[in-house]
Design a protein around this nucleic acid. Structure first.
Lengths: 151, 151
DNA sequence: TCCTTGTTGATGCAATTGCATCTATATGGA
DNA sequence: TCCATATAGATGCAATTGCATCAACAAGGA
């Protein structure tokens, strides 16, 4: 088995990707913290649950959507529930499981986070690249996904 | 103070960036772990120190280069030193500080990590985008940096 | 010299995360 | 029915991280 060596272009692109994404995320987390808001992961879950509507989602369905480990989801949901942002309902046909649904204050919290989060995105992406460049960027990144999905 | 709203293009690009970078990094960390190697952060530090040469670097110089908090650098260096991968030397003209230098086994470890890390980059970037596309990607990402730097 | 302020690096403690495992329920075959 | 295996979700414990603070030295002015 021979180990492959990456091209200089691949190394540069990788380095930029890792560095820029970390910077952007970190600054966004800082902005949330500065406004007394919870971390980005909370938004991700609230967003998915809001999209899912009244039917809610099963915890295991959240795992792939928010890229968290099973125990991460379990604990994050426990915190969200403790804060009254989501509610857990028993599932009729599966005694093991539960359905998680966003509450009214969950939706409210989502809005409050978005006010800061959205502004960060606008500042750090929208203001720096044209719509066309943003589409190009999204398309290139799309080709790096695993599994390779349609674009 | 009016909060800005990001364009749909900005949101899509942002979502891809966050998701793809997390996936790539996580898979790389997994590959390292599977080969019994330390995390990426160790590589970053060893890489910077290798570049710095015999003169080594002061810990505070590492902070910005590897995007770690001060205490993160302090503790990471302590582990690297405990493993004999770096050595700390007193600084002549500043009694507070120290100079950190990579050791021979540090260089060896760097090579071993790179064998896996480099292959990941080749697999996940080099094999999926052409050299031209990689340059485009790097350029677009470059414009998202903070502070905006030349390209 | 002395005192105030700034910088460098380490660390105690709390919160978070990762890993392994556990409980409870479901499923399918003998 | 009974048992083996699989799946959903929670959790004990260790390792890591974040926050706040500390100790040590540096630098510059009164």
């Amino acid at each position: 088995m021979t180990k492959k060596s990456p091209s200089p272009e691949a190394i540069t692109a990788w380095a930029r990707l890792v560095r820029v994404s970390r910077q952007l995320i970190e600054r966004t987390e800082d902005a949330l913290k500065a406004n007394g808001l919870p971390p980005l992961a909370w938004y991700d879950v609230l967003h998915e649950l809001a999209e899912a509507g009244e039917g809610g989602l099963r915890p295991f369905e959240l795992i792939d959507r928010v890229l968290l480990a099973q125990y991460g989801v379990s604990r994050l949901l426990a915190r969200l529930e403790a804060d009254g942002l989501v509610e857990k309902l028993p599932v009729a046909d599966d005694g093991r499981g539960q359905t998680v649904r966003i509450t009214a204050s969950g939706r409210e919290m989502r809005r409050r986070i978005w006010a800061v989060y959205g502004a960060c995105i606008a500042d750090r992406m929208g203001d720096r690249l044209s719509a066309q460049d943003l589409r190009t960027l999204a398309s290139l990144l799309g080709r790096l996904r695993d599994p390779p999905a349609s674009d």
